[in-house]
Amino acid sequence: MASTMASSANASSNKKSSAPSSSTNNANVIKRLQSELMTLMLSPTPGISAFPSDTDMTRWSATVLGPSSTPYENLTFKLSLAYPSNYPYAPPEVLFTTPVYHPNVDMAGRICLDILKPAGKGGEGAWSAVLNTGSVLLSIQSLLGEPNNSSPLNGEAALLWDRDQVEYKKKVLARHQEPAELEANGS
């Protein structure tokens, strides 16, 4: 009886004082994400922005500006980030919501990037708990300009990158949709 009352008391009082359980973990994740958001707002990095969704603090949407003097120059890319409940010990799941033509991005927007894979498994993952939203977005931005052609998700793009930059840029522009178009298309 007392224990049920205790749990109801916990639920009614703020989450902050609840027991170390999955909900605390979640509170810790939210706390950390709030801290990250604060940092992003107070010292914004040019070309990068991220904001949580209205309803779920663990789902963010972000925009990344294509790096200059690359085929992605002046293009804006939207991404979605989903943080697991054991963040920051596991990496967020990052997807491009803008269609991107890139050797390391597939048609569904999945990104092949070492820091987005959990570390220790097979050695190719390089996620670290000290990484954060800002550093992840920066890595993705630089990946746009410096693709890793040794393990491409899009083989055609990898070949074309090395062979014909003009044609590559054409393909990039053909695939790209500005955020406004994307919304207009209802996707």
């Binding site: 007392a2 205790a6 902050k16 004082s17 170390p20 810790n28």
Partner: peptide
């Protein structure tokens, strides 16, 4: 019991 240890990170 009612008041678990304070999580200093929160």
């Amino acid at each position: 019991n009612y008041n678990p240890p304070v999580d200093l990170r929160l």
